[in-house]
């Protein structure tokens, strides 16, 4: 790969923006560029990244999923309630329950989208309301305080895979969440690149009719896509739980748009077929820095929503303006 092709890629520009942004923040507040802050950012944004990868896969297939945050909170809240009710204190069980819920709810999405052929945005808007409404109506609305959260979940949230000691003797480190993220990234990358079903996701996103005629089983691929997104949402639900050590059935829901924004900023086409995991991760990094570090440069949190809006608009404008210019060039050449 030469330099020229590097500059044609969206990811390159995005990474440059992230770097410039980081430099600006560091010059204003040097706390930003410390290992400690970086590890902290990784720890708190790994969950978002996992969710974003789920949405990324759905977008690749030419759909959209705004219900994944509702799925995540359903998985989390059901898992923690089952754990407390049964007295089981095991993080693996929590993950299993949450993933199970995620797979089931993802399958419900897939039934509507694949069998009844409904538009994905409106379907997932509907199921998001359906899932969250059902959770609050039948599983309760009470938040679960840190005192009632099983120990294994709290321990997991503080677990590090690398530990460093500060001069004053206290410790900080790279969270186990990063390991989960890496596993999911590698798994997704492998699925998309080396399996038939992964190639199928790109194919139906690029051109559904063509994919059908090539012999791809579209129904199977769509079921896989939405259930995979559900699975990742389930994983994220438990990660979020052990991160904040508190479970409120109204959390997570409502953040879907900023997660989608991260994926789209990462260069994934909303019409499907184009996009990379690298781009998605950089997109998440950009949104996380915006959400978590505006305070570091002295801007109040009221500006958060505004800046996210501006960044999404700028990001998509650049992408689609580029497309338009390239199209014109193509026409002129022909």
């Amino acid at each position: 790969m030469n330099l020229k092709s590097l500059f044609k890629k969206n990811e390159t520009y995005l990474l440059l923006i992230v770097i410039v942004f980081s430099i600006v923040i560091t010059t204003i507040n040097p706390v930003f560029m410390t290992w400690e802050n970086m590890f902290d950012l990784l720890r708190s944004s790994s969950g978002t990244a996992v969710l974003a990868i789920g949405i990324f896969v759905v977008l690749l297939s030419g759909g959209i999923d705004v219900s994944c945050t509702a799925i995540a909170i359903c998985g989390q809240y059901i898992a923690i309630n089952v754990l407390i009710a049964s007295g089981v204190d095991n993080i693996a069980v929590a993950f299993l329950i949450s993933i199970g819920v995620g797979l089931a709810l993802g399958a419900i999405n897939a039934v509507f989208i694949s069998i009844f052929n409904l538009p994905t945005l409106i379907t997932t808007l509907g199921t998001s309301s359906l899932f969250h409404g059902a959770l609050l109506e039948w599983f309760g609305t009470k938040a679960i305080n840190v005192g009632n959260i099983p120990d294994s979940i709290k321990v997991f949230g503080k677990m590090n895979i690398l530990t460093f000691t500060r001069p004053d003797g206290t410790q900080y480190g790279l969270s186990v969440f990063f390991l989960i993220l890496v596993i999911i990234v590698v798994l997704t990358w492998f699925l998309l690149k080396y399996t038939m079903i992964g190639r199928g996701i790109y194919a139906i996103g690029g051109n559904r009719e063509a994919a059908k005629r090539c012999g791809y089983n579209i129904r199977k691929i769509q079921f896989f896509t939405y259930m995979y997104a559900g699975l990742l949402a389930g994983v994220m639900g438990v990660m979020h739980l052990s991160l904040i050590r508190y479970s409120n059935p109204n959390y997570i829901v409502g953040s879907e748009l900023s997660v989608i924004a991260a994926v789209v900023l990462g260069g994934t086409r909303i019409s499907g077929g184009t996009g990379t995991i690298t781009g998605t991760l950089i997109g998440v990094a950009l949104i996380t820095i915006l959400e978590k570090n505006l305070v570091l440069i002295g801007l109040s949190s009221y500006w958060q929503q505004f800046f996210i809006g501006v960044i999404i608009i700028l990001g998509v404008t650049i992408t689609y303006a580029q497309n338009k210019i390239n199209e014109r060039k193509g026409l002129r050449a022909a």
Partner: peptide, 9 residues
């Protein structure tokens, strides 16, 4: 989606 954030912001 973008302007939703912008206007509310």
């Amino acid at each position: 989606l973008g302007t939703q954030g912008l206007f509310l912001g």
